[in-house]
């Protein structure tokens, strides 16, 4: 009787340890996915390149500036040579580099303002425009650089910068800590179990639980179709967001697949060892 109740208590404790390990594996999966996606400076830029973001963004900015130009007395042709996608790429790259290194969260529009002013001077001279008020001109340049800045910046990035940067700093330690805790639980389960196949059983429970927990997120997101319904006014940014969100979900699916392979391996190994033991 005493042996049976001890055995039941042990079973409960191991199941509890397996549950804790499952939760830790879920958190580790999430942390690793975040680390290689959202917290990686190259992630956003790579996705921007692959979605033709800079060409679309160039067209959007030119359209917005043309609308501003209509209000400011500028002909549509003024904006034909003012910008190009390469400049937008350069400014975006610098902005993201400085953002992730914690230096700055705003786009530097100095060069844009200079180019705009130079183009204005040329336009005034070519069209022999007499009626130019310096205050109105400065207001126009200010608004134009505001449009450029807000178009190149990623919305909400500056308000979330504190959290993203803090997360980026601690994430390697979090991942290391989670790995250590998971390893400790694995060692406890393996070395305190007199039967190896039972240890594998609990490890299998943990990895199967983690597989389900991780896998349900991308499954739910893809089935709901919510990603495509995000309300972003910029088409270029919308395309990048959808691509990034899909990348994150696919990363989680891959992690779930790896966990599934591990749990299946543990399951079959456990069954083989158990069968051998029963037969012997």
């Amino acid at each position: 009787m005493g042996h049976k109740s001890r055995s039941k208590v042990k079973s409960v404790i191991y199941t509890l340890l397996a549950f804790i390990m499952s939760v830790l594996m879920f958190l580790l999966s999430f942390a690793i996915t975040l680390q290689v996606t959202i917290l990686s400076p190259d992630f956003l830029l790579d996705n921007m390149n692959s979605t033709n973001y800079f060409v679309e963004k160039y067209q959007e900015i030119v359209q917005k500036l043309t609308d501003l130009g209509n209000a400011g007395g500028l002909d549509k042709s003024f904006f034909d040579d003012l910008l190009n996608p390469v400049e937008i790429y350069d400014d975006t790259e610098i902005y993201l580099e400085e953002y992730y290194s914690g230096k700055s969260t705003v786009v530097d529009t100095t060069e844009f303002r200079q180019n705009f002013n130079n183009a204005l001077d040329k336009y005034i001279e070519e069209n022999n425009i007499q009626n130019v008020d310096s205050e109105s001109r400065e207001y126009l340049v200010k608004n134009a650089s505001g449009i450029y800045r807000s178009s190149v910046e990623v919305p909400f990035f500056s308000s979330a910068s504190t959290y993203i940067l803090a997360l980026a700093k601690i994430m390697p330690f979090v991942i290391a800590g989670l790995c250590v805790m998971i390893a400790a639980i694995v060692l406890i389960i393996v070395f305190t179990n007199s039967w190896r196949h039972r240890a594998l059983k609990y490890l299998c429970y943990a990895t199967s639980g983690a597989t389900l927990t991780v896998g349900v997120i991308p499954a739910f997101v893809f089935m709901s179709g919510k990603i495509q319904q995000i309300n972003i006014s910029s088409r270029a940014l919308y395309t990048v967001f959808v691509q990034c969100a899909n990348s994150v979900m696919i990363s989680l699916l891959l992690v779930a697949a790896v966990l599934l392979i591990i749990s299946l391996t543990l399951f079959f190994t456990h069954m083989n060892i158990r069968k051998k033991l029963i037969n012997s």
Binding site: A18, F19, V23, S208, G209, L212
Partner: peptide, 17 residues
């Protein structure tokens, strides 16, 4: 059955936590 039931219980327990 425990290989089916317990992972589901772990999954629900994780989200509850």
């Amino acid at each position: 059955k425990s290989f089916l039931i317990l992972p589901i219980v772990f999954f629900m327990g994780t989200y509850l936590v």
